[in-house]
């Protein structure tokens, strides 16, 4: 009898996973507006400084950019696979894929670090003398480059922190095969970060 009462209480705990996911999507739309604003600024300056953007983009390393694209796409795969694993009640496999996602995200950031420091060594950073001596299109291109990839990088770091929490939740049994909406929402966030990079990559690295 007492067991029955307990089960009855648990079933009545309010739980709305669809609502939780919809809430996450609404948050993602605010992110879309945040980055969308920057893409609008980029498109206008690119329109008014076409030649200069062209030349400035040649200073970016396409190979690192392509490599980072592959890393981020793969991390999206490991993220979504970690959800399938938890659905199939394979907790350890899910933990492994979450860890792989974090590993790939950090790999992305390490590449970004080397890319940025190489630019700094050449004196290309916002407000540097080398950059300020260039034409205005050049300054705008690198200003947008640092701002947009920087904000994207910040999102990658936030993603790493969130996935770390999910690993802890999965480990402690808070995220389980029949209650994984937290992990799924983290995945949604991670995929959005991936989508933003999908657009950043050709716009900055492939316009030479």
């Amino acid at each position: 009898m007492s067991t029955n009462t307990l089960v009855h209480v648990e079933v009545n705990i309010h739980r709305d996973d669809i609502g939780a996911r919809l809430g996450m999507w609404l948050f993602l739309f605010t992110e879309l507006i945040l980055f969308g604003g920057m893409f609008i600024i980029y498109s206008v300056y690119r329109f008014t400084h076409q030649e200069e953007f062209h030349l400035a983009a040649q200073e970016l390393n396409t190979i690192i950019g392509t490599f980072n694209t592959i890393i981020l796409l793969t991390s999206s795969l490991t993220m979504v696979v970690s959800i399938v694993a938890i659905q199939k009640q394979k907790r350890n496999l899910s933990l492994l894929f979450q860890m792989l996602t974090i590993f790939l995200a950090l790999f992305f950031m390490v590449n970004k670090y080397f890319e940025w420091t190489a630019k700094f060594h050449h004196g290309i950073y916002p407000g540097s003398d080398t950059l300020l001596n260039e034409n205005s299109g050049h300054i705008l291109f690198f200003g947008l480059y640092y701002m947009m990839t920087g904000l994207h990088g910040l999102h990658v770091i936030i993603g790493v922190v969130m996935i770390s929490f999910m690993m802890r939740f999965t480990f402690k049994g808070i995220v389980t095969y029949d209650n994984y909406v937290k992990l799924e929402n983290t995945g949604l966030y991670w995929h959005l970060v991936d989508i933003i990079w999908i657009f950043l990559f050709p716009l900055f690295y492939l316009i030479t």
Partner: peptide
Amino acid sequence: TIVTALLIASVKAYLVLAIFM
């Protein structure tokens, strides 16, 4: 060049939205 790049990026974004998300 830009049109093709954006078109391919859109297809990629669609795949991520439809399947991964």
